[in-house]
Nucleic acid binder design. Structure first.
Lengths: 345, 345
DNA sequence: ATCGTGCCTGTAATCGATTACATACGCGTT
DNA sequence: AACGCGTATGTAATCGATTACAGGCACGAT
């Protein structure tokens, strides 16, 4: 195996020889150009081009005591909501030269063990966590060491965990949604929730109740339907709504997916949106503006969330800033066709 | 920094000492249990548990001349279609102990360079490529070396590339869709295509034309609308359809997203589906069964595609099988509410 | 002329696990 | 008793880049 062998992959020593310098100089020319002369740098760069050298990351990482990658902990990769955040993360991170690893936290097979590994040690230099439901127990070791990789939460977070996060104002979003219904004249307002122990569910419910009470409207437990953010659970909620004797005329769903499932099921029972009932979603996923009717919803900037989280992690990795603070991005109401005045009864 | 320092992370030598053996034996006990005595193995395992040892992957990878990871080249991460395939890949790969790296092939910033790196060298042990539109030039180096990482295509592929793939029978899917419309009595059948240079577009168009010609029906170029698989392009196609004087009564869209955009736009112009026009999609994404009307479409097993691709790559990585053959998974027609008899004119 | 200072470069140790090679031991054969 | 063979283990080289440390050189100050 020499330089004419098609399998030959040049090492730093080959570049050094070609440039007539030492390996140390080559290394410096690559990672810290200011340390070498203009002339040497040029010679090294030429030698690199000539030999077709590419650094061996395993060797670099071993020596530098890092991994060159960050991992994103995603609950349910196949959910488009998360994949768009992942997209933002990947854009920023791969530009910064980091590998982006993904791990699905809801994978049945030993996901916990895998997550523990990522949290604990040397598979990744940092993590971005999109899942607020990581079991406490997994963090036990984490808190104990000081050499733990930095964590940034995005979207969801773990209350009281003490690591920075990039989130939106979920309560505010709910307030916007409910106030919109109130302004349209609705008096009886319902809410389709996500999983009860989910942080987003909790905040959005708080906002919903606050807006309702602020306007002096009833908060009827019969009008709160539990879901899990999925399309299918929106369908289930619609059936519950149909089975309610005194139905709310406006319904705020805690995700667009649930709103779509909700509307789809109502439609197949002959209930019209917005004539019979108004529906507001949350997220503004792509389909929202193309659904029939076009869905009024709370827009969250998903790609921006991912990018912000990535930049925050980058800041923490570069070390000079342990003072990174949590960021809260703004949400806004997007009025479309799924909301209107309540039916005149 | 000793074993009582909270930053101390045990090395293989610490385990070796704790177990009273050499590092070589520890290594063997971990990776090749059959090579050591029952008793030694137990002692090593106990020592590992006691010390809390976790292997340093950078060191292992350096020595083994591998990276421990595979990369998935995804065109547009935020597309739910791809993220679900990614999900299947991740499930299989992380269970097999591989890191799963993702890279978006459509990222503006030097994506090409990044892809070239992945193809060329030591960032990944293998790749799964979901994008059939990777520029030929990037493969130039790849073909030249024999030490290249194995590649498996999934969904899309590069014609004549000579690496195995996991695909569906796209032409067959199109035939199923068109025949369904024909059976319902449609005579004038249109087709909304993806990007013209896309392999899926090409195969699906071939199937469409074959089915049409097989039934002795006209293939009218005015009834073929170019799109790009996105919702937005479905909207554009609908406008084109509306502007056509002699409109097809049945339209087969090459993706569900386009079908939804198509139907949404028709709806806002007062055209009813399926009364005025029947629409068939392709993919069977989650929203298809909840859209209004529920979308008749061609189902593809996305998670299964990802899993199959991952297993195929695993087989190639384990080396013993350079004889892995391409796999073609079956598609099927799912009849829902967006298709019906053509209008009586 | 001598010394100090700063800049650039080279030598060699280092990161931590794997594995080629060497050794030691036990046991059955001749 | 000597030998061969197989199994289990240890010793030390190795993967390839980074970087601590040690020169060496030029230039200005004394």
């Amino acid at each position: 195996m020499n330089r004419h062998d098609p399998n030959f992959s040049p090492k730093i020593i080959d570049v050094a020889r070609a440039a007539g310098v030492s390996t140390a100089t080559v290394s410096r020319a690559i990672t810290n150009p200011a340390m070498v002369t203009e002339a040497t740098r040029a010679a090294v760069m030429a030698a690199i081009a000539e030999t077709g050298y590419i650094v061996n990351h395993a060797a670099r990482n071993l020596r530098r005591q890092q991994t060159g990658g960050i991992v994103v902990l995603v609950p349910n990769l196949s959910n488009p909501f998360f994949s768009q955040i992942l997209s933002g993360v990947a854009a920023v991170m791969s530009e910064a030269g980091f590998n982006v690893l993904v791990a699905d936290t809801q994978q049945p097979k030993g996901a916990d063990l895998q997550i523990a590994q990522y949290l604990h040690n040397n598979r990744a230099d940092g993590l971005i966590v999109l899942d607020g439901a990581i079991p406490e127990s997994l963090f036990a070791d984490y808190r104990r060491t000081r050499s733990r990789p930095p964590v940034v939460f995005a979207c969801e977070w773990v209350e009281g965990f003490g690591e920075p996060s990039v989130t939106i104002d979920n309560a505010e979003g709910a307030v916007l949604a409910v106030n919109h219904l109130i302004e349209l004249g609705h008096h009886k307002i319902g809410h389709v929730l996500g999983p009860l122990d989910n942080v987003l569910t909790i905040k959005r419910r708080e906002g919903t109740i606050a807006a309702l009470e602020g306007a002096g409207f009833p908060v009827d437990p019969d009008w709160f339907f539990e879901g899990d953010f999925s399309l299918a659970s929106g369908v289930v909620a619609a059936r519950a709504w149909l089975a309610t004797s005194d139905r709310p005329t406006g319904v705020f769903c805690s995700s667009d997916a649930m709103a779509c499932g909700f509307m789809a099921e109502l439609h197949s029972h002959g209930v019209r949106v917005p004539e019979d009932v108004s529906v507001v979603g949350f997220d503004d996923i792509e389909i929202a503006q193309h659904f029939i009717p076009k869905l009024t919803t709370i827009h969250q900037p998903r790609t921006a969330i991912g990018e912000a989280a990535a930049r925050m992690l980058l800041a923490r990795l570069s070390g000079n800033s342990d003072d990174v603070d949590s960021v809260r991005l703004t949400v806004e109401l997007v009025r479309r066709d799924s909301t209107g005045a309540p039916p005149i009864r």
